[in-house]
């Protein structure tokens, strides 16, 4: 039996793609390769570990061949998988790509295959969380008129969530902070947006909330309360549709 070579990579699309590039180039046979994220520290027997540094050039090559040989829809699945919170995502992408290079764009139809099915399910889960946050994000206005929102998503959805709000609020200065990853989308009015680590953020920007905030939140909570039909109360349904984990930063669910 051959020893399994484990490529250990950074948790980013560049990191994962670089590891896939190296695994492919090794020509050891795909069954003898495995790709793992850095923070998965469990060590298995009969494996040797190889740490892979992200290499933009290699990652770019992988991106290009996915788009050309498997198609844009497949690239989107892979991208969403890379943003997901699954520990096995790097290897899942690797396995999917092996099939993809074999079948071409048709691989997307192969839903009865476990590797493809996992990609499809994850795509659905991540895009669902993104979709929910397009509605559940709440901005607060600071006294300098900057709109600030905090979220705590399961998956790393900032890069796919931001374009929606950039299009919607192109003439506003706004920020969406991912509390669990300590990253933020920053959008200066009418300018290019970017994602920034909170450590690098100029904390002076985060002023006090504006005076009208309390009034607006109060008005909103009043509205949500009064629009409900008492005779049809159904808290279980409410919770199915808006699970508790989304409510942390939603003012209508704050008890006074």
């Amino acid at each position: 039996m051959n020893e399994i070579q484990v490529y250990v990579c950074e948790d980013s699309i560049e990191g994962i793609f670089t590891a896939i590039y190296d695994a492919w180039a090794s020509k050891r046979g795909h069954v003898n390769n495995k790709i793992q994220l850095e923070h998965n520290t469990e060590i298995a027997l009969f494996c040797s570990y190889l740490s892979v540094k992200p290499d933009l050039e290699k990652a770019e090559k992988v991106t290009r061949s996915i788009k050309q040989k498997i198609g844009l829809e497949a690239y989107r699945y892979i991208y969403y998988m890379a943003l997901s919170n699954r520990d096995d995502k790097a290897d899942a992408i690797y396995r999917f790509m092996i099939l993809g290079f074999h079948y071409g764009s048709q691989v997307m139809d192969h839903l009865s295959n476990d590797a493809v099915n996992l990609m499809a399910k994850t795509y659905k889960r991540v895009s669902m969380e993104r979709h929910r946050y397009t509605g559940f994000v709440r901005f607060e206005e600071l006294s300098n008129h900057i709109l600030v929102s905090k979220i705590r998503p399961e998956n790393n959805i900032l890069p796919i969530l931001a374009p929606h709000f950039v299009d919607r609020f192109s003439s506003e200065n706004f920020m969406i902070i991912d509390e669990s990853r300590q990253m933020a989308v920053v959008h200066p009015a009418r300018k290019q947006w970017f994602i920034l680590s909170m450590e690098l953020m100029d904390q002076n920007v985060l002023e006090e909330v504006s005076e009208r905030e309390k009034e607006m939140k109060g008005a909103w909570a009043t509205f949500v309360e009064h629009i409900s039909i008492k005779e049809r109360e159904n808290l279980k349904l409410q919770q199915n549709m808006c699970p508790l984990r989304y409510r942390e930063f939603m003012p209508e669910f704050k008890k006074e």
């Binding site: 509605g135 949500v224 629009i227 049809r232 109360e233 159904n234 349904l237 409410q238 549709m241």
Partner: peptide
């Protein structure tokens, strides 16, 4: 957005 977006749910479970 043509899919429509729900922003919250009232106590009767209806979308707002």
């Amino acid at each position: 957005a043509s899919c429509g977006i729900c922003h919250t749910y009232s106590q009767d479970g209806r979308c707002i």
